[in-house]
Amino acid sequence: MLSLLVSRGLQSALIVALVVTFSFLLIHSAPGDPFAGALDNPRVNPAIRANLRAQYGLDRPLPEQYVKYVAQLARGNLGWSFSRGRSVRAVLGDVLPRTLLLMATALVASFLIGVGVATVQVSRRGSALDGFLDRASLFLASMPDFWLAILILLAFSYWIPFFSIGGAVDPVVHDMLPPYARFFDSLWHLILPAVTLTLLYASGIARFQRGALLDVMPLDFIRTARSKGLRERQILLHHAMRNALLTLITLIGLSFPALLTGAVFIEKVFAWPGMGLAMVGAIGARDYPLVIGCVIVGSVLVVLGSLLADLLYRWADPRLRQL
């Protein structure tokens, strides 16, 4: 186990280093002025923008900028966000917990719902309910995430004004509330973006899990269980489900990058002030340090997701522990 962790740790560090290098080169190669969008004062002319570029060292050759960036990164300094006027670490400290909250909520809910739907479909295989859930999950899985988000926002915030239109809290009253009411305020604002993200991923998980269960159901050990007189529900939940877990674990590993990407669109539409929204803004503003900071955090999350999936594989499948 230790050797696995060391080996995966080294691989992960290499992946993150490559991600940093490529993202640094890509974002610096993109055309555009980092100080164009941030300064809309009519008297801020190109000369002043040139001075600002020089102040941040952006007038230096790219290799020199890269070496400087890596050196400061090695000291744990992610740099200074031009567009937000704060250190990248402080910005990420604000936005990352919100994205993690959104992702974690959606991850747990989508797996619970996805697995539940798949189980119902397999237990009622060939029924009208199975057909309906199949078409519904296909419909949701094929919906563009930003489109579904806009529809849900319009439906439940504007046409039927049930939820707040965007944001992580109610900026008007939140600070005046006692702690328990702040919690409910945050929860109230979390519902729509989390439901959107959950619907998108639960549908995919349901389809994968249904396929995995259907693959398992004709196998010999299931037939043996049936011949022993076990009830169908028991067979499905205790025997088939456990053997179909490997697909689920694969999906957990894959869901981190997918959820991160989805969160970008969801955060934009629901004005959820998380890392996705920060990254979109940073790309538009050519805020190089913040873009790279977000990419680093994103890549670390993906690497951790992959590592978690590997560990879960070993836990779920005894054959892998022998390797």
Binding site: I150, L153, I165, G166, G167, P171, V172, K268, V269, F270, A271, P273, L277, V280, G281
Partner: peptide, 8 residues
């Protein structure tokens, strides 16, 4: 109240 998306 900050909302970067115009439509939102």
């Amino acid at each position: 109240s900050i909302a970067p998306d115009f439509n939102a």
